[in-house]
Design a protein around this nucleic acid. Structure first.
Lengths: 199, 199
DNA sequence: GAATCAAGCTAACGACCGTTAGTTCATTTC
DNA sequence: GAAATGAACTAACGGTCGTTAGCTTGATTC
């Protein structure tokens, strides 16, 4: 029988990562100690190092895994044949969908990335610039077709993305409370997109 | 001759507060040590305690001073006789003006408040709720007059405020670079407000 | 010119930090 | 059943943290 690699071996590490996401989100990376993290997992701090190699590795994996998720959700939208208005709307809904699917990790991605060391920090900044550039391209196309108002596209993109960045607050880990409905996600998108459409 | 109280005595403490704002913003509260702060001021960490009583006192004063500034800027707008649309626009421009005037402290206000201890933390949360309620009243009035789209007002307010919260990034301390112009502030406001107006 | 005082200094405290070393023990593998 | 492995443990390391105590010094006050 062939070996099915890493079905159970990964389980414990994933538990650690999940708790780390929750704690890094709630208290911040620097204010979360390895002893705190271990305690929520019912183990000693030193035991964590059977599964991970450092605290910062946890942060890196959380941040870059989320980056991948955002790209995987938005890139297909950008490549689609939609018009600028529908494309921008779909891109923002995709962005919001990723946050909704991984609220804890998204909060870490949005606020704790700066505590990574080099060279990861620089990689992260470059990645984020690439992400904004991708969305900016939609805005620029919309402007050149006269469908969007003539406003500095990078200013527009920052305002759009920033306007979505509170939404993870609606998803307290493990709880149903406050979860945003499909309609609410659609409304947030609408507020942001309608603001830049020519009338 | 009458004593003019605290013209120079406050100078050093204000220097400390200003450097603390810059460091707390750049590195985060927990990642900034009192020794870091002292070094940027050319003194030893212990000497700071001739002027302040604790690290957390610095954070509290920064956060609550900014809260005062936001209220002082926006409350007159709310009390004014403007219609909902103009009132909301003026409120957001006032909010952006406060951020522009104190970028470092605004960044701390927006991101580092959670590191305050009780009871200050709870006071802060109540204050913020009051601020959002104040702006929500404008939105609710606009909706009831049919001038704004029928969208959950607290969702609207969170999106509006969140959409402004990236702007401090344009103001690197002590540098002219990237400063937002009056027109850009007006454009950001326009994006956000136009998105909720009925058409 | 003596006294006061603001504002710096050095030294150090106890607490906590991330991490390593070495051990134990149950489970899995051959 | 012996050997190997995974995953936990205890103990401890060197470092940094916020903060305090006590001292020095130069300027100000009376």
């Amino acid at each position: 029988m062939e070996r099915i690699t890493q079905t159970k071996p990964m389980a414990r590490k994933d538990q650690i990562r999940q708790k780390a996401q929750a704690l890094f989100r709630e208290r911040g990376y620097r204010a979360t100690s390895m002893r705190d993290l271990a305690e929520t997992l019912g183990m000693e701090a030193a035991s964590l190092y059977n599964h991970i190699s450092s605290k910062e590795e946890l942060l890196q994996q959380i941040c870059f895994a989320m980056a991948d998720q955002f790209f995987e959700a938005v890139e297909p939208v950008v490549a689609s044949p939609l018009g600028p208005k529908e494309k921008l709307r779909a891109a923002i809904e995709a962005h919001l969908g990723v946050i909704a699917a991984s609220a804890d990790a998204s909060a870490v991605f949005l606020h704790e990335w700066r505590h990574m060391g080099e060279p990861f920090l620089n990689d992260f900044k470059l990645m984020r610039r690439r992400y904004e550039k991708m969305i900016r391209a939609i805005v620029e196309e919309g402007i050149s077709l006269g469908m969007f108002r003539k406003i500095d596209p990078s200013l527009v993109v920052r305002t759009l993305l920033s306007g979505t960045n509170w939404t993870y607050e609606s998803y307290k880990s493990h709880r149903l409370q406050g979860k945003l409905s499909e309609q609410e996600i659609s409304e947030i998108t609408s507020i942001l997109v309608e603001g830049i459409i020519t009338r």
